[in-house]
């Protein structure tokens, strides 16, 4: 009898212990502020213009951060959380426009500008090298400058000479 009570107590205890371990495994530790901020950094609430969510001091934004924390605790991934906010509040919550549809403009724009810029520079270079032989070109366009220029040049030549000597 005593033995059976012991066995029951022991097995009950064991089951409780197992249950405890299992429940401990189920409820993960609360996500840290750093984990929350890593995601919040990439989001903007629609009210606080231009303030990233991770540093916004308003209570509304604090609530959003709590929401991120809850979703992290529920085991959602970073992408899932971001998608959730986009679905709820629109694409503007993202720090950068999603590169699709018309928004490709904002990514291709700078690229096109660079290509055009390099092309224009190339044309200018070509045209500069094509024109007038040296002797025909006016040295400078203003009345006073050549003298100042000359003085400067002479000065720098002298400096150069000194450097070479020294």
């Amino acid at each position: 009898m005593r033995k059976s009570i012991f066995v029951i107590a022991f097995s009950l205890g064991f089951i409780l212990l197992l249950a405890g371990v299992a429940s401990a495994q189920q409820s993960q530790p609360t996500p840290s502020d750093d984990q929350v901020n890593a995601i919040a950094k990439q989001l903007y609430c629609p009210v606080c213009e231009n303030t990233p969510l991770d540093v916004c001091p308003t209570t509304a934004c604090a609530r959003w951060r709590d929401l991120i924390r809850q979703q992290l605790a529920a085991g959602k991934t970073e992408q899932e959380i971001k998608d959730y906010f986009v679905k709820q509040y629109g694409a503007r919550v993202l720090g950068t426009p999603p590169p699709e549809g018309i928004n490709l403009l904002v990514y291709l724009g700078p690229l096109v500008a660079v290509v055009i810029g390099i092309y224009v520079l190339y044309r200018v270079y070509r045209s500069w090298n094509k024109t007038v032989p040296e002797s025909n070109a006016p040295p400078s366009s203003s009345g006073l400058t050549p003298e100042q220029d000359a003085a400067q040049d002479e000065y720098i030549h002298r400096l150069e000479d000194e450097v070479r000597k020294g």
Partner: peptide, 19 residues
């Protein structure tokens, strides 16, 4: 209407930092 979805977007620091 499919191209222009009318959604406002944010051009934040990360965009500038990429370019």
């Amino acid at each position: 209407s499919s191209v222009f979805n009318g959604q406002k977007v944010t051009v934040g620091p990360n965009w500038y930092k990429d370019i």
